[in-house]
Write a protein that binds this DNA or RNA. Structure first.
Lengths: 233, 233
DNA sequence: CGCAGTCATATGTCTGCACATAATGCTGCG
DNA sequence: CGCAGCATTATGTGCAGACATATGACTGCG
């Protein structure tokens, strides 16, 4: 009874993915045009377009006007990872989050920081150090610089209650950010804060956020030993 | 002079992003419906839909049928990173890539590997160790297990020329993958291969790829000291 | 032969319309 | 009063047609 529903763009996408994975269409191959595929699938070109665009966004197809669509030669898979607020990451695992503000001062940043944040030589910045805790255990050590010219209202903010990260996310919009992951051996002070020793290899994330061409904040998080960051392809 | 071109979905997206960043629409706010926005922008609803969908994919909006569209309360920015083939990463910097296959054997994997790859207790796997070099300097050490039942043709492959990674990317399709980033101190053997000592903290990536419910390969890359992984928000 | 201008083509996108789907909240029956 | 079911509403998606844009290929001038 009742015939099939119409072909959806997901149907088309599934079929396209199958053909790529089965190597029916091989890397580098030019695939049929949208018009041809629309005829084959019995649907509108817009539907095929929607499907091919989705697959192309996943990096499995390369599309160029006039040229056509070809299977990506090097399927550069793009992993999308969520950058959670630490509190949420901890609470999502059922842990109790807390944070301690260890230091807060307004000073001239060192040249390296000034350079990366593209600050004027005379500009002062807010330096913050804090410790994030999960169930009262050290979770990550935070070392942050904030461009007070870009976010003047932070001067009056109470960062002992709400973490600087959460305050900034809520109050200071940003348009882009650079992330750097690395491994390091902690200095004596950092090791002490994290309740570990200089012998451990620690995972660290550095994040620099921008509002157009203005740096907002540069922060380095150094995690407790054994921390791993997971994501999915 | 000539009049303006029509409003594109990018125009709408830009305007929407502005309103979010300017806090004209605040986190948690319900924004106007597609029909209302279409009237305001003087374009078709489909155009507004395209724009809002794009913004929602970036995680700045939450959309639910019947409920409407609201500004995400916690703008969980999603970073998309490309997972390059090591050879491309090195060559993109103008380095000369090389790799050396250090070990290749067919054996029963240890229980930990068997468990993560969901292999049968009796299943053998191909164990590979290799070193990736940039300009003749050690770049990363690779420790890999391949499910030979899923990729039987690898038995006949010459992995001394093409790296196992490139061979697999080209020959064995996969549908999903798990990535884990971490920091570790190398064992003596790994340190020796990388030309470093056990004193350094090294960045490592572990990747497990699946073709539906079948594990293809589990690989751990341990990078040279000082290696950093960069991505953009 | 070299190069500029033109044409053809595949994707990109807008429009206006229709119907599908999810989820809220009202309505009316028992 | 409680709850099943229906009406309402906002987004999700399909379709056909049109025009926009990028770019390879062709053509013809000098």
């Amino acid at each position: 009874m009742s015939e099939r529903s119409r072909t959806t763009w997901q149907d088309v996408r599934a079929d396209v993915l199958d053909r790529i994975r089965s190597r029916d269409w091989k890397p580098g191959d030019l695939i049929p045009t949208e018009v041809e595929l629309a005829a084959e699938f019995g649907c509108a070109r817009a539907t095929v377009n929607r499907a091919l665009r989705a697959v192309a966004e996943d990096g499995l197809l390369d599309r160029r006007r006039k040229i056509g669509t070809r299977v990506a030669r090097h399927p550069v898979r793009r992993a999308t990872m969520r950058i959670p607020i630490l509190r949420h990451e901890i609470e999502a695992r059922g842990g109790a989050y807390a944070h301690r503000l260890l230091q807060r001062e307004n000073r001239l940043p060192p040249a390296a920081v000034r350079g990366r944040m593209a600050l004027l030589p005379t500009a002062r910045a807010l330096r913050l150090r804090a410790l994030h805790l999960a169930d009262d255990e050290p979770y990550a050590f935070e070392d942050r610089w904030v461009n007070v010219d870009a976010v003047p209202t932070i001067a009056a903010a109470d960062l002992t209650q709400l973490s600087a990260n959460e305050w900034l996310v809520a109050q200071a919009p940003f348009t882009s950010g650079d992330l750097t992951f690395g491994a390091l051996r902690p200095g004596a002070a950092t090791a002490a804060h994290l309740g570990t020793t200089k012998d451990h290899a620690l995972f660290s994330i550095e994040r620099l956020t921008w509002n157009d061409a203005t740096a907002i904040t540069l922060v380095r998080l150094t995690f407790h030993p054994g921390y791993e960051l997971r994501m999915t392809l």
